[in-house]
Design a protein around this nucleic acid. Sequence first.
DNA 1: CTGAAAGCGCTTACAG
DNA 2: CTGAAAGCGCTTACAG
Lengths: 351, 351
Amino acid sequence: MSQDSDTQPARSGRTTIRTVAEHSGVSVAAVSKVLRNAYGVSAALRARVEASIAELDYRPNASARGLRGQTYTIGILMVDIGNPFYPDILAGIDQGLENTQYVPLFGIGRGRASLEAATLHAMIDRQMDGIILVGQRLEPKVLAEVARSMPIVIIAHHDPNATGFDTVNNDDLLGGRLVVEHLLAQGYRRPAMITTRNTDMDVADVAVRREMGFSQAMQAAGLGEYIRVERAEDALDDVTATVRKLLTGDDPPDALFGWADYYALEVLSAVRALGYRVPEDVGLIGYDNSEPCAFTQNDLTSIDQSGREIGRKAAQLLLERIGGRTSAVHFLTQPRVVARGTTAGRSNPAG
Amino acid sequence: MSQDSDTQPARSGRTTIRTVAEHSGVSVAAVSKVLRNAYGVSAALRARVEASIAELDYRPNASARGLRGQTYTIGILMVDIGNPFYPDILAGIDQGLENTQYVPLFGIGRGRASLEAATLHAMIDRQMDGIILVGQRLEPKVLAEVARSMPIVIIAHHDPNATGFDTVNNDDLLGGRLVVEHLLAQGYRRPAMITTRNTDMDVADVAVRREMGFSQAMQAAGLGEYIRVERAEDALDDVTATVRKLLTGDDPPDALFGWADYYALEVLSAVRALGYRVPEDVGLIGYDNSEPCAFTQNDLTSIDQSGREIGRKAAQLLLERIGGRTSAVHFLTQPRVVARGTTAGRSNPAG
DNA sequence: CTGAAAGCGCTTACAG
DNA sequence: CTGAAAGCGCTTACAG
């Protein structure tokens, strides 16, 4: 409100670091230090500059900052959108970035690997300070190369020996085992898994790890001969065809494990469309414990993998890498069963 | 693969516009023109430069470009994530940006207005070339100010008289009317609407428009005295409490309109949790015709609003604004009913 | 059509 | 602790 500024306004109409320097009567370099919270500025100078920044409503140009220093931008590259599990992860990432200058901006691969790679490169071109990949499907070579040049943390990709980047995951192997143990405890005797085709069939893949855990537990329970894992595209029609094949075949399963919630909800749709009752004819369990599981029409048992903690940890690790850490960290959260109606048991357990 | 480059590599290890200029034996300015598809370069020069770019695998630094020209970045600011309607819109935006240099990067407000405003400013600080707002909840003053300084297109916000930005919407007023007409045609006699509290109660709001259409059609059908619109937070527990209040009150509704699919699915959960059958005891209709509507356990009737077309149009309009258009365009898509099981009719229509 | 020079708004050494 | 100068990698006028 005060009118007592007799310094000249900067020539252009825009408020730049120079406007602030002139307004507060210090050098441009001094203002820069205040912006970056760099040491070597007196409290008095800092106070003066901060007052000018507030009065002028100055905001630094991120492009200019990025040309020499950082952009204070974190890229979050998600393979797709619409997976009900993502909101938890994002909430965690936001929490991990709280009280920092870093802003998360998102890229969405929409299920296409080429789009995902293009978006990753766009993030690099934009000088982002670090990138969190959520469920990536990049070529290992591309990934390794990118990780060499910038801080990378990967969620939902197991690579415990990787040295160039950090990973944050749920213990999917254990989660897969918990699925079988829960189903057997509920009286089911013939569990089968139905999983996405959308994987590179590598042990790094979370779906593959869950499958391994599933198979291990089946073996351990003496059901090694019954292990059935069917694959279907993510689309409802293919899931339905695959469920039909399973349930109308010889010695059909009495319980199904959908590899993730979004997928298990399609399985639920398919099972009911085919005229089977859940859980009386067929039990069903998902993975993620995302919000729709709790809806009455779904009432879906699922494995909780602490998405919020995963997101928070990933942000924390990325900030550490940006801060200079070069050794790799690989973090796992513990899965746990959240039992609901879809695994309440068969009508005739002896069947 | 050729080893015949006798030009000096640029001093630093990085490939810059200068490296390309030296490699192809032209000026830096000439390379810049090729990058921007600017006119005034011969085909021969262009070919030479493009060959160098390919050979060197050069990618321009977007921060540096942004300092003088454009960043070729489009910001997409979404109020939240997890709304099943968004994938359609994003697919449309991607389609609209195809074959351009523009890359969409997303900001997510996660339902908090302060986070939304902060992310918007972060996009401006990063010199984005234009911004598409999806379901914004900003203060009109902030919005007008931002629109003055950069190209803005808004999805899901009606402001047909706005001159500073474009809008792309479904005709929500008509959609609200279609809801009532469909319910009455299916034999329901007491429709009520249940809608979010998460609105500023302005006619610009899509939920408010749908409500207006709903009320208008009720009036037109001679049901003006029965118009009931209940409000509940987006959370399942509040929706459930509100549904209970509606269905256990005097002269309870025999059909419910949930303002959007994500919300109608919560209503479905609530209705069934309270022991009512859908559609026999209560009919239910949503809005968006998003993917989960087709799931058997939901089988939710909904209003399709052509999300893909909305996204495509928004991208097209934004590119036009970036290209220089200053007049405002306000585009509407036509809603249509997609009938499913949740409005199949009452068991006792005379009731 | 082509290029040399200035400049965008910051940060980074380097002096003082 | 503070500041003057160089420079990041582009684009933009402006000459030729």
